[in-house]
Amino acid sequence: MLNIKNINVSVEDKEILKNFNLNINKGEIHVIMGPNGVGKSTLSRVLMGDNHYKVTSGEIIFLDEDLQKLSVDERARKGIFVAYQHPSEIEGVNNVDFLKAALRAKSNKPINLYTFANEMETLSKNLQLKENMLYRSINSGFSGGEKKKNEILQMRLLKPKLVILDEIDSGLDVDSLKIVAQNTLEYLKETKDTSVIIITHYPRILEYIKPDFVHIVKEGHIVKTGDYSLALAVEKNGFENY
């Protein structure tokens, strides 16, 4: 599904990712772990097409297409979704109008409002999001947990093929983490071909979402790959040994 071949990525002339390689097949769950500042979140920004991050060499193939030739919105419509660590607050644009616009863009046709309303009601109940939040400005005045749940609501509504959870567990209390993880798992059960990249510092979320591969990133590239036990070893011993 996703093949990242030897990319180098710079931000304002500072090289963040160096000779970074990663191959993800359909339905696989990969975890990216590493200390602060090694380029974990840079990866999500690069995949989504943030133009502040320059890919200076290498290539990224997603579903047989050169990702670098696609704009941000084209990448999203092709099936990439990033649940952001710090989702934007957008005053004046309400959640419902935004989600309708996103669904219209994806299907390229008018949406059925009855189906949409029902789906929103079910998803917001599952995520324990108050219904009035859907009619408020995007993430405006939301708590940290509510913002993360809103990201998951968008994911379930837009049904992407590659989900990148960028530190979705940061700032979440125990109950909210469980709700976010359970909703993600439910989505993965519904769409078995969906692949996931979980970017995290801690293995807490992995107690719910069991990964196929765990990668340790240091100095801009993967230095070690293993399974779930690698995440547990990191929690016990830190990143120093890698």
């Binding site: 979704f81 957008i90 004046g92 644009v93 863009a105 837009l158």
Partner: peptide, 28 residues
């Protein structure tokens, strides 16, 4: 540009994203 990126990263075209943001800015 952060708000524009966020909307576009949900599949909404640049033109439609700008329309949502400017309408929100005026109406709000």
């Amino acid at each position: 540009d952060k708000e524009l990126f966020y909307l576009m990263s949900r599949g909404i075209s640049k033109e439609e994203s700008i329309n949502l943001l400017t309408t929100g800015f005026l109406v709000n």
